[in-house]
Design a protein around this nucleic acid. Structure first.
Lengths: 390, 390
DNA sequence: CTGAAAGCGCTTACAG
DNA sequence: CTGAAAGCGCTTACAG
């Protein structure tokens, strides 16, 4: 069967192609009743203008692209992206704009994809997530001249609008909460060091640590994986600077931390308070439910879509700050054990020395001894014994 | 700056547009050295043919569409889709085909999106997931004539190729494993009743129950959410037909079940064995790690992409069965408590009466009393007491 | 092996 | 208020 074109509609309505086009695009120059008739016929036949023909003419693809740089395993378990994508969707759909998605292995691959998309005029603009401190994508996208919106803080010297929220404030809130509960040894299990917001958050964490005069405030860098989250926690709980509270950079690692603590017989929140990173449903899926830094990821996605649409449209897409994440207090944070309270206070030098690094572990290497899958659970008596007395 | 077109390349190479096109598409009729020269120039200038112009001419969008019908919250936490999408990606990218994604609220909305995509010739074909028993999308897609591939079992009377795996066998394997461990009261917490594979799995579950002469084999229908998974478990563990093992239809509900059991002081796997549904990373993120029905979701996605590309291409896309899921045994399944062994055996009638329904709970209603967020944790002694002795 | 030309299905000045 | 025509950037028979 032959596919319907504008000419078919024009013939049936007894007008020219041009008139059909005007009617369809709500342009002046068509009488109300002609317009009506045309729309009715088009509707009856289920005709819609060909995206390709229209794109060719108006040089607009009515599509934006998102190339995510994460490995499939992490993506599956990381609730952020699907919520984010769903959030963008509503906004895009309202503007009849499609979303082209690609899961890339690294920034290079993502960049190649975006380059192809743009060169082939498949997209009108792109969204860039997981910004690195030195991000090879940005200068290239700038050179290409593709409308881009950054998911993360604006960058000096970078012309692209950014949609961000105050990461520093979010971390500070978490630390404040813990300090209020009497914690003075607070650790941070951070995400990828290369990421811009990791940097920001770590800075805020240290500043808060100094301001509150904490005793210790080690920071561990990880790759966001469950494995490294658990490893980092194990490291902390068995190490010299054993904290009474840990702030995690995402939910998956917070869950891992909870699990690692359980393996070591460390009670949560009795002996260890935990704050999670994204407040996905994961936080309410464990026991105790995790206190988390919470923001509306869907609204965030919608805001990003809006800014990109504006950038693509009339170029008015402007950087925009979203509400700062709030702390949602649940069962995983509790008053600190006060026993070790009266010691020295943290200074900047000590703090620097406390920035540790988790031994690199491939995200797929699951042979970590204390993994929940490990066959030998710690017997209850053992666990009891390792608890501090007060 | 003016955008590059084929004419620019032709001028620079000193040939006609046609020759450039031939060279680019590896068609005969261009000398090796001319081709070489053209490609070099195109490459240097970063020129790529406009997707719109090409699509207009060859009537091929080089794009396929996936409209997912799930709410954002579920999607975020359900690891299946991102893994599935990542799996499709490699295959699609190899054929320079893009993926248009939409997160729809329901099948109607998804259908409208697919209709638009097809009418506007934005896609060459679509992927349909979450097949319902009576699926309103299928007859419409058939009428539209859009190349489609079904993620799920082939349907009699439906012309679309399907990519599926043996759901019945997977469930049977799980039940067999539990029976081997001595379980005779096994429950199934199923997903959405409307879904085709829920039907298949429930059928297989009941058949296995009868074959093994189980004592009880209740089936509970849910919406796949954490809430209903927990509610169903609570229901089962406090009810008349208290099972010693539960088979869940996805991972999220299995986690919920684990949590609900813990709340009730029921030891896993001591008093209750749990089998999860998809073997995502979630299963290894909890303690004990969950025995799960496991299949390679990424490979599954790749297979779907391949079949769709074949359907779109020369129409040879054919139904294809993927490997049956294997049972991955972990810490959540253990021998049954033999105490209650010597009672009567299940017959079909009883089985029918055992098909329960979980009271409807909105996926967002988190005010379920035994939710992990609940303030009153079971003290350790309590938990200890409820452990079985052997 | 190469060039000139038609045409894919729209949009949009330009006449009337 | 409406029609005729050019043109977006390609591909592809058709001549040469």
């Amino acid at each position: 069967m032959k596919r319907l074109t504008i000419s078919d509609i024009a013939t049936m309505a007894g007008v020219s192609n041009g008139t059909v086009s005007y009617a369809l695009n709500d342009r002046p120059g068509v009488s109300a009743q002609t317009r009506e008739r045309i729309l009715r016929i088009a509707d009856e036949l289920g005709w819609r203008p060909s995206a390709a023909a229209r794109a060719l003419k108006v040089a607009r693809a009515q599509t934006v692209g998102l190339a995510i740089t994460r490995d499939a395993a992490t993506l599956g378990i990381e609730p952020f992206f699907m919520r984010f994508i769903a959030g963008m969707e509503g906004e895009l759909a309202a503007h009849r704009t499609g979303l082209l998605l690609q899961v890339a292995g690294d920034h290079h691959e993502a960049l190649e994809t975006m380059r192809d998309w743009w060169a082939e005029k498949r997209v009108d603009g792109v969204i860039v997530t997981d910004l690195w401190n030195h991000d090879l994508r940005l200068p290239e996208l700038e050179r290409m001249g593709v409308p881009t919106v950054l998911v993360g803080a604006p960058r000096p010297g970078c012309p692209f609008p950014a949609v961000w929220s105050d990461d520093a404030a979010a971390v500070t809130t978490a630390v404040d909460h813990l300090v209020e509960l009497g914690h003075r040894d607070i650790a941070r299990v951070a995400g990828l060091t290369a990421l811009q917001h990791t940097h920001v958050r770590t800075g805020a964490f240290r500043a808060a640590a100094v301001r509150h005069g904490l005793r210790s405030a080690p920071v561990l860098a990880t790759d966001y994986s469950w494995e490294q989250g658990a490893l980092a926690t194990h490291h902390l709980l068995t190490g010299r600077l054993r904290p009474t509270a840990i702030v995690f950079d995402n939910d998956v690692m917070a869950l891992a931390g909870l699990s690692a603590a359980r393996q070591l017989g460390v009670a949560v929140p009795g002996e260890l308070s935990i704050v999670a990173g994204d407040d996905s449903q994961l936080c309410e899926m464990v026991y105790p439910a995790l206190t988390a830094v919470s923001r509306n990821v869907q609204a965030y996605g919608a805001a990003v879509a809006r800014v990109l649409l504006d950038s693509v449209g009339d170029g008015t897409g402007d950087s925009r700050q979203e509400p700062t994440a709030r702390l949602r207090v649940r069962g995983s944070t509790a008053p600190a054990d006060r026993g070790r309270r009266d010691r020295d206070t943290l200074d900047r030098d000590t703090l620097d020395r406390q920035t540790l690094r988790v031994p690199a572990v491939s995200a797929r290497d699951r042979a970590v001894p204390w993994t929940p899958a490990a066959p030998a659970p710690v017997p209850p008596q053992e666990r009891r014994r390792s608890r501090p007395t007060g």
